[in-house]
Amino acid sequence: MSGTRGAVPRQRIVVVGMGNVYRRDDGAGPAVAARVAALVGGVSDRGPLADPFDLLGLWAGTDLAVVVDAVRSGAEVGTVRLIDLDTDPVPVPARALAGTTSTHGIGVADILRLARAVGNAPKRVVVVGIEGNDFGQGTGLSPAVRHAVPHAAQQVADLIGEAG
């Protein structure tokens, strides 16, 4: 999803909802992205990404990149957390690209490291995490996550507004 608030984009902004809508709460990212497209003018929803490597192309030359995804951190279900990767440390997974990972499991942190290595990283990357509970098979979010979607979408809209 890309665009800005207002008719004349001044900043290039990309919002990506990551996740699989067929695995219950993992669909939180795409649900937020769809809601942001409805909230903010000039934004189109391109649907969820199939491959994290696609972030590299989408991110090239952007001012702000927002990645929305379901998380499982142990927090209360439905908790929305913003991580600004400019100011917060980039989380390095236990099996990061530098060490052991295969390309089966590449994550946002690895993609950001690659984007920075080739000088194509967005000026600012914000990860919006929504605590999920049910990652089983099927569509539909659990009640607490469904309730959190508008709240998360408004926070993304505010980020776009501030950057706009």
């Binding site: 530098a98 490291r113 690659l114 290595a117 000088g119």
Partner: peptide
């Protein structure tokens, strides 16, 4: 050591 170092050293090849 890894693809990140390769990307830093040879951007053309990585891209």
């Amino acid at each position: 050591a890894d693809a990140v170092e390769l990307a830093t050293r040879d951007r053309v090849a990585f891209e």
